[in-house]
């Protein structure tokens, strides 16, 4: 009868512990970690998909854009990110607002930028790189409060996008150059922008830099 040498190689797995080439003694740690990881990754996502939004904009509600700046969001849209006036303090240079309705979204991002609204829109486009699609010539838009914005629209495989850039101040060139910048980005499915055009236009016209400016 053959006898062993008494020296067991360190990585030797006895046959009774093997299953499909794997060491069954490692199953507990490995599969427990895998199970918990999958719950942590996918559990919240499944829950999030199951919970509908109930954060509808009601008539009379106003968005806080920071530093006294405001906008009147379209009634019935869901506020997914952002602060309404009287609920908290928004930052004009670190603003993040998202409104959604059907397949359309309106994002409003505030940033610190020294220069004109036109230069700010250049900076935004440069930072995002070239995307496939057609871009329209730039135009200008004036809000009821006298803010002058620069508008550019584009259409591509991912849908229609309208970007409107503002400097949140009215007055001298120095004052507007130094003011925080605001980018309003509207995204819809391809060819669907007209459906939301009136609501979006009304909201953009309502953007105000606040009494402080």
């Amino acid at each position: 009868m053959a006898t062993g040498t008494g020296q067991v190689p360190r990585d030797w797995v006895p046959v009774e512990h093997r299953l499909f080439g794997l060491d069954r003694r490692t199953f507990a740690a490995g599969f427990t970690a895998l199970g918990i990881a999958l719950v942590l990754i996918y559990g919240p996502q499944v829950l999030n998909a199951a919970i509908p939004w109930h954060n509808e904009i009601r008539a009379g509600e106003v968005l806080d854009l920071g530093d006294g700046g405001t906008a009147v969001p379209p009634v019935g849209w869901q506020l997914e990110k952002g602060t309404l006036t009287g609920e908290g303090a928004a930052s004009a240079t670190n603003l993040d607002v998202v409104l959604a309705s059907g397949g359309a979204t309106i994002e409003m991002d505030g940033a610190a930028f020294e220069g004109s609204a036109n230069a700010f829109l250049d900076q935004v486009i440069q930072s995002e790189g070239d995307e496939p699609g057609m871009t329209s010539a730039r135009g200008s838009v004036t809000t009821d409060a006298g803010l002058v914005g620069v508008v550019e629209s584009s259409t591509g495989p991912s849908g229609d996008t309208v970007d409107v850039a503002f400097k949140m101040a009215v007055g001298t060139a120095e004052a507007t150059d130094a003011a925080p910048a605001l980018l309003v980005r509207v995204r819809t499915a391809a060819g669907q922008f007209e459906r939301y055009q009136d609501e979006v236009a009304a909201m953009i016209r309502s953007i105000s830099p606040g009494v402080a400016r």
Binding site: L40, G43, Q45, W53, N55, L79, E80, G82, L84, G88
Partner: peptide
């Protein structure tokens, strides 16, 4: 692998359940 997708979903859940200001705070 874990925190980024989980946090994104959870922050959205808190905004849905308690509103955006609650989620911010």
């Amino acid at each position: 692998w874990i925190a980024l997708p989980a946090n994104t979903a959870l922050l959205s859940i808190w905004a849905k359940l308690g509103g955006t200001t609650f989620a911010d705070d």
